[in-house]
Computed example of a mutant assay.
Amino acid sequence: MPSYKLTYFPIQALAEPIRFLFSYGGTEFIDYRFDRADWPKIKPTMPFGQVPVVEVDGKKIAQSVAISRYLAKQYGLAGKDDWESLEIDSTYENNETAKEEKLKRAKEIVPYYLERLDAQVQKNGGYFVGGALSWADFTFVGLLDYLNFMMRENIIEKYDNLKQLKQKVEKIPSIKSWIEKRPSDINP
């Protein structure tokens, strides 16, 4: 069994979907949250000078999307076939685009994506892809607190399908357990 260490700032943000995946998979991992003041020392030791980083038996892997996709494959959450895998990637990329926008522009763009994501969940039986749980669902729900914090509002308030998806993901026993025991952040 490989050993895993997740390195990130002391917040949920981009690392939370990864923590959801580890929790869902029942995988023990070191959740290393470094002090922000130490970032200048840590940054040069990280691939691409970025976090989150996951170490698998001491080998460092960067980029939250790549990490999530890798773990999703381990836990059977990467789609039933190549097409579903592509749909999951596409869903995640839309979510990333919405997240990266500046706040002023995001106020226009985020509802555009949320309408489409809500419709996608409705069309796919309550999940983003194939009527079944995938890492796209974990990524969206895992990033929601962070997105709400950045947007200064509950961005899914008007989207019933997304609200139901959030509830479903958060009721999964391993995810519920993680949420109950995770460190409380100053901000998500």
Rank of each mutant, 00 (worst) to 15 (best):
P40V: 11
V54P: 01
Y4H: 12
G26D: 09
E16H: 13
F22R: 05
L21I: 11
P44Q: 05
F29L: 06
E28S: 15
E16R: 10
I18N: 11
D31K: 07
T45V: 03
L6F: 08
P40M: 07
F22P: 05
P2W: 01
P44F: 04
A15N: 04
V51H: 10
F9L: 14
L14P: 01
S23Q: 02
E55D: 12
P10S: 05
K5N: 06
P10A: 06
A15W: 00
G49V: 10
S3G: 01
S3L: 03
F20G: 09
P2A: 14
E28Q: 15
F9R: 04
I11C: 04
K5H: 09
Y32T: 11
E55Q: 14
W39H: 09
P47E: 03
T7Y: 00
K5R: 14
V54Y: 00
F34T: 09
I30T: 15
T27R: 10
A15L: 01
I11L: 14
F9M: 14
G49Y: 02
W39D: 11
P10C: 04
P52Q: 07
K5D: 08
I11A: 12
I30A: 13
F22Y: 06
K5T: 15
T27I: 12
L14C: 11
K43C: 09
W39T: 10
I18L: 13
L14F: 11
K41V: 08
S23P: 02
S23R: 00
Q12N: 15
L6D: 08
Y24T: 03
R36G: 10
P52L: 06
V53Y: 02
Q50V: 01
Y24L: 11
P52N: 04
V53N: 07
S3C: 08
M46P: 08
T7G: 02
Q50A: 11
Q50R: 14
I42W: 02
W39N: 10
E28K: 15
G49W: 06
P17Y: 05
Y4T: 09
F29K: 02
K41C: 01
G49T: 07
Q12M: 13
Y24I: 03
K41W: 01
Y32Q: 14
R19A: 08
P52V: 02
A13K: 05
Y32C: 01
A37F: 04
Q50C: 04
F9Y: 13
L21V: 10
R19G: 03
M1L: 13
P17H: 10
G49L: 05
P40G: 10
E55F: 01
I42F: 01
A13R: 12
W39S: 11
A15D: 02
V51T: 13
E16T: 09
A13T: 15
P52S: 05
V51A: 14
F29I: 04
W39R: 06
V51D: 00
P2H: 06
L21F: 07
E16F: 03
Y32S: 14
Y24P: 00
Y24S: 03
V53I: 12
G26V: 06
L14I: 01
F20D: 06
T27W: 00
K5W: 03
A15T: 02
D38L: 11
A15Y: 05
S3Y: 00
I42R: 04
K43H: 06
Y8G: 13
P10L: 04
I11P: 01
Y8V: 12
